[in-house]
C-alpha cells in the first residue's frame, strides 16, 4: 500500500499523438513504477482521474479526449502543472521469451511502456496497434509493430484479432498482453487461450479513491484499483467482465 499526498509536476513535453490523444512527459520520475500501474492525476479545483503510465522515468501519460477533465489535461502545454499520486495497482508481469502486445486505441500507451521494459530484459516483443481509422492510431512501440484499422485507412484492414490470428499462424507467443476496449480484450484473451498462450489484460473502471477503499471500481468482487488493473484469465469467468461498469453514483451500466 502506498501512502502519499499528491506531488506537483511540470509538463516537460506535450505531444499531440493523433486526433484525440496527447502524450504528456512530466519532470518527475517514479523509478519503481512498472507498466500497467497507474497514477491519479489531479488538476486542483477541478477533478482527479486515474491514468495508466506510458513511462516512468520520466513519467509519461497518454490522454485521450473523452470529457471535460481529459480535454483540460490534453490542453496542458510545456510548463503547465498537474499533481500526481501513485503509482497504484498491480502492473504487468513480464513472462516468457516471446510476447505479443495487442492494443486498441490509446490502450496501446501502457503496452509501449511494456515493450521498452521487455527490450531491457531481452524479451522479444511484437505489437499490434489497432484503431477505428488512421487518425486514431497511436505511434509505434520500440518493437516490431503491426497496425490495423477498421476502415483500412492505414495498416491492415480489419480488427486486431485478424492480425493476431495471422501472427499465431506463423509463430508462437508465450504471453499475450492486451489493453483497450473491454470487449476487444475479452476476444483477445479467448483467442490467446485457444492458442495456449498466457494472457494479461488491463481493466478500466470509473475510479474514486484509487486505493481500494471505496469499492467504486468493482468488477464482480474484484477491485480494479487494488486487485488490478492487471488481471488474467480469471476475468473470463467474472460475472461483470465485458458486461457491467458502475457510473459516478454506482449505478450498474451495461458495457
Amino acid at each position: 500500500m502506498i501512502l502519499m499526498l499528491p506531488q506537483v509536476a511540470t509538463v516537460a513535453k506535450a505531444e499531440k499523438e493523433n486526433s484525440t490523444v496527447t502524450t504528456l512527459t512530466l519532470n518527475i520520475s517514479l523509478p519503481r513504477a512498472i507498466p500497467g500501474q497507474f497514477v491519479m492525476a489531479w488538476l486542483p479545483g477541478f477533478d482527479e482521474k486515474p491514468l495508466s503510465l506510458a513511462g516512468a522515468s520520466p513519467v509519461k501519460i497518454s490522454v485521450g479526449e473523452r470529457g471535460p477533465f481529459s480535454s483540460r489535461l490534453c490542453g496542458l502545454k510545456k510548463g503547465g502543472k498537474l499533481w500526481v499520486r501513485g503509482p497504484y495497482g498491480r502492473g504487468f508481469e513480464l513472462e516468457g521469451k516471446k510476447i505479443l502486445l495487442v492494443g486498441g486505441g490509446y490502450g496501446f500507451a501502457p503496452l509501449r511502456f511494456l515493450a521498452d521494459q521487455a527490450r531491457k530484459k531481452k524479451i522479444t516483443a511484437t505489437a499490434i496497434c489497432g484503431a477505428r481509422s488512421k487518425s486514431l492510431l497511436m505511434a509505434p512501440a520500440s518493437c516490431k509493430t503491426l497496425f490495423t484499422t477498421d476502415d483500412g485507412s492505414a495498416g491492415i484492414k480489419g480488427n486486431v484479432l485478424a492480425a493476431m490470428e495471422g501472427l499465431f499462424a506463423r509463430e508462437k507467443f508465450d504471453t499475450v498482453y492486451t489493453c483497450g476496449p473491454e470487449r476487444m480484450m475479452g476476444s483477445v484473451a479467448r483467442l490467446a487461450k485457444k492458442k495456449k498462450a498466457d494472457c494479461q489484460l488491463l481493466l478500466e473502471r470509473y475510479m474514486k479513491c484509487g486505493i481500494g477503499v471505496c469499492g467504486h471500481c468493482a468488477c464482480g468482487d474484484r477491485l480494479v484499483c487494488f486487485d488490478g488493473p492487471r488481471f488474467g484469465y480469471e476475468m473470463l469467468s467474472n460475472p461483470e467482465f465485458e458486461r457491467v461498469w458502475r457510473d459516478k453514483a454506482g449505478h450498474k451500466v451495461p458495457i
Binding site: 500500500m1 502506498i2 501512502l3 502519499m4 499526498l5 499528491p6 491519479m40 489531479w42 477541478f46 477533478d47 482527479e48 482521474k49 499520486r85 475510479m207 474514486k208 479513491c209 484509487g210 486505493i211 477503499v213 471505496c214 467504486h216 458502475r246 459516478k248 453514483a249 454506482g250 449505478h251 450498474k252
Partner: peptide, 22 residues
C-alpha cells in the same frame, strides 16, 4: 469530484460525498 480520498501513514482522509445508486 476527486480527490475524494487521501491516504498517509497516520491517517486516511475522505470525502466521497455519500455516492450511492439509491
Amino acid at each position: 469530484n476527486n480527490p475524494t480520498m487521501i491516504n498517509t501513514p497516520e491517517a486516511m482522509l475522505n470525502a466521497i460525498g455519500l455516492s450511492n445508486p439509491g
